[in-house]
Computed example of a mutant assay.
Amino acid sequence: MLTAGCGGSGGDTSMTAKPPSIARFDDGIDILRRLGGEAAMAPLTPSRGLPASLAQYSGAVLIDAGDLPTIVGRLEVDVDFTAAGQVSGTADLFQDLSGGAYSGTLSATGGQITSETSLGVETVDLALDLDGNLARGGGDDVTYDLSYTGTFFGAAAQYLSGNLRGTALSDGNPVGVTGQAELSR
């Protein structure tokens, strides 16, 4: 396995993600389905296909925390494929199925890009932490401590598709969290 904070020599660096509009729960689900389908049709990104500069990814994230309402929101991540290897971002605009809006932001930090070859197939992944507090109008304050692992798809890393795992703390009670995030640039 090779751990890298720098990029390859190829790729179209002119593409930038347009932040999605998530006014309703269904908007987030539509984005997840569309980007997930597009990523599934694209080839795995080889390390030589990574951009050699900053790439901005935008899409949706779904968080399912047991008895808490399932929520979707917008996720934006900046990945610096140069030697600096910085990754940052935010998740916001969360909605639940009943139409409840959530205030607060989850911050994306601690990103790491890795490349691994197994059975002759190379995958390039991004791992990061997604942490913060979200509150629904009635004062339901939930603290999230999540880890995201995504794989780059497309000849020039146009898509990032992956899963979330972690915990949510609500009223002092920890709850297991799963989820997914689909992004494009």
Results as ranks from 00 to 15, higher is better:
38 E>A: 12
43 P>T: 12
37 G>D: 01
36 G>L: 00
46 P>E: 14
25 F>V: 05
44 L>V: 15
29 I>V: 12
23 A>V: 13
33 R>P: 00
50 L>G: 02
49 G>Q: 04
31 I>A: 10
49 G>N: 05
37 G>Y: 00
32 L>S: 08
42 A>K: 11
50 L>I: 03
26 D>V: 02
42 A>R: 08
48 R>S: 14
50 L>F: 02
33 R>N: 09
46 P>W: 14
49 G>M: 04
39 A>P: 13
25 F>W: 11
24 R>L: 11
24 R>G: 05
46 P>A: 11
22 I>E: 06
44 L>D: 13
43 P>F: 07
35 L>I: 08
35 L>Y: 03
35 L>K: 08
25 F>I: 05
28 G>T: 08
22 I>D: 02
44 L>F: 14
40 A>C: 04
51 P>M: 00
38 E>P: 07
31 I>H: 07
26 D>H: 03
41 M>H: 13
36 G>Q: 01
23 A>T: 14
38 E>D: 15
26 D>L: 02
46 P>K: 15
44 L>R: 15
47 S>A: 11
34 R>E: 04
25 F>A: 02
26 D>Q: 10
22 I>P: 07
49 G>V: 01
34 R>S: 04
51 P>S: 02
31 I>G: 04
23 A>N: 15
50 L>C: 01
45 T>P: 08
51 P>I: 06
22 I>S: 08
32 L>E: 07
31 I>E: 08
24 R>M: 11
34 R>I: 01
24 R>D: 14
34 R>K: 00
23 A>L: 14
27 D>W: 07
44 L>E: 14
25 F>H: 09
40 A>N: 10
39 A>V: 11
39 A>D: 11
35 L>R: 06
35 L>E: 03
51 P>L: 06
40 A>V: 02
34 R>N: 03
44 L>W: 13
31 I>C: 09
44 L>G: 13
29 I>C: 06
44 L>K: 15
26 D>P: 01
50 L>P: 01
51 P>H: 04
25 F>N: 02
45 T>A: 08
22 I>M: 10
33 R>C: 05
48 R>P: 10
48 R>G: 13
43 P>W: 08
39 A>Y: 12
43 P>I: 12
26 D>G: 01
25 F>L: 04
50 L>R: 05
30 D>A: 10
32 L>G: 03
33 R>M: 01
30 D>S: 12
49 G>Y: 05
24 R>H: 15
42 A>H: 10
51 P>G: 04
28 G>S: 11
24 R>N: 14
39 A>R: 12
26 D>M: 01
34 R>L: 02
49 G>H: 02
31 I>M: 07
33 R>F: 03
40 A>S: 15
30 D>L: 05
47 S>I: 11
43 P>Y: 07
50 L>A: 03
42 A>F: 09
30 D>N: 10
49 G>T: 04
22 I>N: 06
37 G>P: 00
40 A>R: 10
36 G>V: 03
32 L>D: 08
29 I>T: 10
38 E>L: 14
26 D>W: 03
25 F>Q: 00
32 L>T: 08
33 R>G: 04
23 A>F: 12
38 E>F: 13
41 M>R: 14
46 P>S: 13
33 R>H: 03
22 I>T: 13
40 A>H: 03
33 R>W: 04
32 L>V: 09
50 L>W: 08
50 L>S: 01
51 P>F: 00
32 L>P: 01
46 P>L: 15
48 R>C: 14
44 L>Y: 15
